[in-house]
Design a binder for these strands. Structure first.
Lengths: 246, 246
DNA sequence: CTAATAGTGTCTATTAGACACTATGTA
DNA sequence: TACATAGTGTCTAATAGACACTATTAG
């Protein structure tokens, strides 16, 4: 196959973001209101074009910062505000009615933010419960997300749900310092199940390198003061945290 | 951000394939010899441009068929020859010196093929042991793969290694009918470890839906005749097959 | 016979899951 | 006081890993 720049079709390449957080015991995704056709007025995932001299990860980090103010690990060596990873790429020829667009979706996990959104290029932005966005396949069509974003969101949610099983990624949903109970509520919100607090406590505190005690305590959840921890260096969780209802 | 087709940069989009198989107790990848600059004469992963009206998965299946003759599940309802899934997307601005190319890499797992390659658009094609292609970081530079293909291959190998832990994907490396011992040798080759044949047998035959006895036996591995199985419908492997040396 | 692989059984240390109980804060 | 959450201990059923033993072929 000859390699002539004029012989292959030109594509637009975008990054779309599945930004997840846990708010009031519910897994939520960041959505933006579309200001233009097509799908004007509908909710969509945040995203935008990759620039001419920009890496895919950089483009995703830039969009994340524009929409939320969150800093992914990229910039310098300070601890990141959010976890960011590539999710999958969507390139159905008919996914955008205007032109051929290939979207490299990324998954971002962030702690609950005080301000729901910051300035971006989108009109309105909101955290919406994932159950609302994806619940009932038919509901997806009436109030659904634009383009193939429901599919992308579903893939991102499934990635998050499975990845917290065998990694310490759930701590990305927590602030820098958190309690065992708060971490447990993250698992419960993401999986939509109830976990035994005592077994959970034994499991996470017994896994070396997962949690590092930071010294203080807090009563922000009520009840007896709970120890504060920060995420340890361990990224793999072995043996994994098992999702119930197998 | 205005959505004007003339305002965004144009990208070329390709699919690259990490095609893995197990040959003579070694995990091997399909490589093709480059006939043109850049990297002329070096080995590379098979791949090619996505066509104007082609889905990404279709492009990957087409390239796989062109290079190996293998049929992924796409075409019709017959059982597929090979497993094919999207791996990740690589879009560093400098990954191709000629132009901006975004490559959507795919991972294919195939049984050992009698003919190493079939007709394709590449000059020579070979199965090369993964350990040769990736062993010793410095060795990668002298006899290494073109572009960022060493990185792509490493990601694909890691995906395969982790995915056979918790799925029945290892059967994609086996012919339609296989023995427990042959399946065990797949795990041993992919992970590069030795597994206890007795515990392995108990594990796989005790997981419902993983293996379905097909009735016959074979002595193609020598020794006592072994039952033949085919892959069952179960795709998830729960509890997972544990990789030793944790 | 030996050598090879297939397949079953048994023992033990570990652990997930269930749950009783105590500790320490707020209303 | 009642009530919330935090944290520890104990019991049991399941299982991964180690390994003894038998079965059935080829040479």
């Amino acid at each position: 196959m000859p390699y002539d720049p004029s012989e292959f079709p030109a594509f637009a390449v975008t990054v779309d973001l599945v930004v997840l957080t846990v708010r009031r015991h519910a897994l939520c995704a960041l959505t933006v209101r579309r200001g233009e056709e097509p799908f004007r007025g509908q909710w969509a995932l945040p995203g935008g074009f990759v620039r001419a001299e920009e890496d895919l990860a950089s483009a995703a980090a830039r969009e994340l910062a524009e929409e939320t103010g969150l800093r992914a690990q990229d910039s310098d060596s300070r601890p990141a505000d959010a976890h960011l990873e590539q999710l999958a790429t969507y390139g159905d020829p008919s996914r955008d009615p205007r032109m051929r667009v290939v979207s490299v979706a990324h998954l971002a996990l962030a702690p609950d933010l005080p301000a729901p959104t910051a300035g971006g290029d989108a009109g309105g932005a909101r955290w919406m419960p994932v159950s609302k966005l994806l619940g009932g396949q038919d509901q997806a069509s009436e109030e659904g997300l634009a383009f193939d974003h429901a599919r992308i969101l579903a893939d991102g949610v499934e990635r998050a749900r499975s990845k917290i099983e065998y990694s310490s990624l759930a701590t990305a949903f927590c602030p820098a310092e958190f309690t065992v109970g708060e971490l447990r509520r993250v698992y419960e919100a993401v999986w939509g199940v109830a976990l035994d607090p005592r077994n959970f406590h034994r499991k996470v505190t017994g896994t070396p390198g997962f949690l590092v005690p930071v010294g203080g305590t807090t009563t922000r959840q009520g009840g007896r003061p709970a120890q504060l921890f920060r995420a340890g260096g361990a990224t793999e969780l072995n043996p994994p945290m098992l999702r119930p209802e197998v």
